[in-house]
Computed example of a mutant assay.
Amino acid sequence: MIDPIPLVDGVALRELRPDDAEALAHAYTGNRAHLAACEPERDEAFFTTDRQATEVAAQLGDAARGVSLALVLATDDATIVGRFTLSGIVRGPFQSANLGYWVDAGRTGRGLATTAVAAIVGVARDELGLHRIQAATLTHNAGSRRVLERNGFEHIGFAPTYLEIAGRWQDHELFQRILHD
């Protein structure tokens, strides 16, 4: 378990918990329009507490197997205002993971994502023993690109039709951060 990490504006980065389903459903519902252009298409059930409970259980199962680390940005009153995930953790000679994230529409532009990614880099290096983190951004997502660059991620390539986002296969820019010399 990773201790909660205080960030800015009374928000902490902490591990996802089984009781987060209702708060996640509320967060996704409130950010539906904000996230629509940057995430896969979601059916109506995705925005319910029941579906989020299923999603949380699956993500916690992945975490227990050591293949992911699911985190949330939460306020003192347990309101969720963002999600950060290290997924696809590979051990052995690779020691790598993929980083994905989003921040509540009302909290963007305040350095919250930049601060959270910095904290995750430290956790990945110091607690998980990873060597590398990769992240992909939509080509038009300048804000996400800036977050990565501010955290020392280097541009490593262009991936045409990389992920199906908002109902169509879209190009992405690829970034990585090497955590050990």
Score class of each variant (00 low, 15 high):
16 L>Y: 05
17 R>F: 11
19 D>Q: 07
20 D>Y: 02
20 D>T: 02
21 A>T: 00
21 A>V: 00
21 A>N: 02
22 E>Y: 09
22 E>G: 05
23 A>V: 06
24 L>K: 05
24 L>T: 01
25 A>C: 06
25 A>W: 00
26 H>Q: 11
27 A>N: 09
28 Y>N: 02
28 Y>I: 05
29 T>S: 07
30 G>V: 10
31 N>M: 07
32 R>D: 04
32 R>T: 06
32 R>P: 01
32 R>L: 04
33 A>F: 11
34 H>E: 15
35 L>C: 04
36 A>K: 14
37 A>P: 15
37 A>R: 15
38 C>T: 15
38 C>R: 03
38 C>Y: 15
39 E>Y: 11
39 E>R: 06
40 P>L: 01
40 P>E: 02
40 P>G: 09
41 E>C: 13
41 E>T: 13
42 R>I: 01
42 R>M: 00
43 D>N: 14
43 D>R: 02
46 F>S: 01
46 F>P: 08
47 F>H: 04
49 T>C: 03
49 T>M: 01
49 T>R: 00
50 D>V: 15
50 D>P: 03
50 D>E: 15
50 D>N: 08
50 D>F: 07
52 Q>I: 14
54 T>V: 13
54 T>P: 07
54 T>Y: 10
54 T>N: 09
54 T>R: 06
55 E>I: 07
55 E>Y: 05
56 V>D: 00
57 A>C: 10
57 A>S: 12
58 A>D: 04
58 A>K: 14
59 Q>S: 11
60 L>C: 13
60 L>S: 06
61 G>H: 07
61 G>C: 09
61 G>D: 04
62 D>R: 08
62 D>E: 10
63 A>N: 06
63 A>C: 13
63 A>V: 12
64 A>M: 14
66 G>E: 05
67 V>N: 05
67 V>F: 04
68 S>E: 10
69 L>T: 07
69 L>M: 10
70 A>M: 11
71 L>W: 11
71 L>M: 08
71 L>G: 01
71 L>D: 01
72 V>L: 10
73 L>A: 12
74 A>F: 06
74 A>Q: 08
75 T>S: 13
76 D>Y: 05
76 D>R: 14
76 D>M: 13
77 D>Q: 11
77 D>H: 07
77 D>E: 12
78 A>F: 11
79 T>I: 13
80 I>P: 00
80 I>Q: 01
81 V>E: 14
82 G>H: 01
83 R>C: 12
83 R>Q: 10
84 F>D: 02
84 F>E: 01
85 T>C: 10
85 T>D: 08
86 L>I: 10
86 L>S: 05
89 I>H: 02
89 I>C: 08
89 I>Q: 02
90 V>G: 15
93 P>F: 11
93 P>I: 13
93 P>A: 08
93 P>G: 02
94 F>W: 11
94 F>P: 03
94 F>G: 07
95 Q>N: 11
95 Q>S: 07
96 S>C: 09
97 A>S: 12
98 N>D: 07
99 L>N: 02
99 L>Q: 13
99 L>A: 04
99 L>W: 12
100 G>W: 11
101 Y>P: 03
101 Y>K: 06
101 Y>Q: 09
102 W>C: 02
102 W>P: 00
103 V>Q: 00
104 D>P: 03
104 D>Y: 06
104 D>N: 08
